[in-house]
Simulated assay, not measured.
Amino acid sequence: MTESVSEHSSANKRRRNPEQTRESILLVAGKLMAKDGPEGLSVSKVAQLAGVNRGTAYHHFKTREQLVQETMSWVSGKLTKGIFGSPEDPIKLDPHEATEKLARFAMEYPDFARVWLFEIMTSKEPGKDPFWSRFLKNLEYYIGAGLAKPDIDREVYAVIMLVGTVMWPVWARAKTSDKKELEQLTQRFIKEVMRLSLHGSLIPEKFSNLDEASEYLKEVK
Rank of each mutant, 00 (worst) to 15 (best):
A148T: 07
L102S: 05
R14H: 08
K221N: 15
V193Y: 01
V166E: 11
R16D: 08
E192F: 04
D151P: 06
V220F: 09
T21P: 02
G51Y: 10
S86I: 01
G55D: 08
Y141V: 05
Y216P: 04
R64W: 08
A50C: 01
D111C: 09
W171F: 15
F207C: 00
G51P: 11
T2P: 02
L136S: 05
L139K: 14
F61Q: 09
D153W: 06
G40C: 03
R16M: 03
K92R: 15
E155C: 05
S42C: 05
K124M: 06
A34V: 02
S76M: 11
A11S: 13
L27Q: 13
R114I: 05
P169T: 13
D94R: 12
G85H: 00
A50E: 03
H96K: 13
V170N: 11
R114Y: 03
M161P: 02
T99W: 05
K62Q: 07
N17K: 03
Y216H: 14
E192S: 04
W116V: 07
V28C: 09
S201L: 11
G85I: 02
D178C: 08
K45R: 13
K221F: 13
Y142G: 00
M167Y: 08
A57E: 07
V159D: 03
R188D: 12
T2R: 12
M72K: 15
A145I: 00
T71Q: 01
V220L: 15
R104W: 03
A106H: 09
S208N: 11
R22M: 10
S4Q: 02
V156S: 15
T122V: 03
L217F: 10
G82F: 03
F135M: 10
A213Q: 12
S177N: 14
P18R: 11
E100V: 07
I143N: 06
R15C: 01
W132Q: 08
M107F: 11
G40N: 02
S214L: 13
V156K: 03
E219H: 13
E70N: 11
I91M: 06
S9R: 15
H60L: 02
K128C: 04
Q69G: 07
T122L: 13
P126D: 08
L49N: 00
K62H: 12
V115P: 01
L210S: 09
E140S: 08
K206D: 08
G37E: 08
R22A: 03
L79M: 10
K191P: 00
F112P: 01
M121E: 15
V68I: 15
A145R: 10
F61P: 09
R173L: 11
S177L: 05
Q48N: 09
E192P: 00
K92P: 04
L198P: 02
L26F: 07
M72T: 06
G164V: 06
K206T: 00
Y216D: 01
T56A: 00
S4E: 04
E183L: 14
E23M: 03
